[in-house]
Write a protein that binds this DNA or RNA. Sequence first.
DNA 1: CGCGACGTTGATTTGCCTCAACGATTGTGG
DNA 2: CCACAATCGTTGAGGCAAATCAACGTCGCG
Lengths: 194, 194
Amino acid sequence: MYPNLITHIRKFVDLSDEQADLVLEHAKLLQIKKNDMLLRGGQVCRASYFVEKGGLCMYFINDKGVEKITHFVIENWWLSDYLSLGSNNPSAFNIRAFENAEVYSLDFHAQELLCRKLPQLERYFRLMMQRGYGAHQFRIKLMREFNSEQYYHHFRDLYPTFIQRIPQYMLASFLGLTPEYLSELRKKDAPRTS
Amino acid sequence: MYPNLITHIRKFVDLSDEQADLVLEHAKLLQIKKNDMLLRGGQVCRASYFVEKGGLCMYFINDKGVEKITHFVIENWWLSDYLSLGSNNPSAFNIRAFENAEVYSLDFHAQELLCRKLPQLERYFRLMMQRGYGAHQFRIKLMREFNSEQYYHHFRDLYPTFIQRIPQYMLASFLGLTPEYLSELRKKDAPRTS
DNA sequence: CGCGACGTTGATTTGCCTCAACGATTGTGG
DNA sequence: CCACAATCGTTGAGGCAAATCAACGTCGCG
């Protein structure tokens, strides 16, 4: 049985069993525990990560020392700092598991090599990048269109199961508001939960 | 002499003169005037646009009827709604020239065809998408890290010549604040310009 | 049991918006 | 060539969404 990674690639491009094996030879499977870090700000980001199981978050630390989460990913999504990865400049982000996780780590050079040997992967990654880019374009729209309350409702309605996997202070951080204010918003939602 | 588009591609991948001609056969050069629209919200986005000259902006209209600019591009950058382009769903965005412009329009099917004939273009577009994705990841960080004043200063210091090409109300819209408040911030900057 | 992590509550403050009015500039038709 | 309107930027008064700060309740866990 192939891992999610291979199944996922096959949703977008053709991949023979031999080719799948080649991919798996170059992608390292990591078993990581909640709060383990995959990238630290200041380091150059040298790999992209595919989540087989569990979840990762990307965040930075502001000048007051507060963690600000900019991105969550769960099963079947890629995550990396693509600016650092592409330029070899130090990353401004941290990446960490918000729950125990299995993650395929695809090193930059391994990706280059795989793309050379399997040209259809170039297409696969283009589609992934395009999708990630598009999602972020749309997210900026949401951030500009909605106030905090609307943004929270939108997110909660779109990902009702996901929000149960993370503590509320992480959700608040991701949404760009304080835990106190999120608490207030939640109270308004359910005035009657007796 | 080759247009910027070809020079740009050649910065990232090899392209013979014959191949360059093939690209130019499939990309339509549009001469567009200030305020001409390339995409309207509600329509499916069917092409990506490369700016040879001039500039484009991407925006949406909020529920009060106000235009909110989410993205500017100038010479040598691509722009499209990549979510709509990839999914064939109606776009939530508009694209318009903020000054007279020359733009290469690359139809979705033309891009697919070119990528099939010239596999290195698959790589080129992957790199473009990766760069755009990375830039947007970073932009979300900026939006979360800075308040309006800091964000304005950051943008002004980073693109001092660009901000002279657009009226202030567009800059305000892009930065996510009101023209009135931007005016106030500018006053604080230069208390003495006698 | 006692400590630390997490969520809640309330009082206060503030960054930024809203609205309304007023210059300055530009372009356009009479 | 001037009158007038439209566009753009500025100013100020007032208001609100959301942050800050401090305190407290609760739960899980060593």
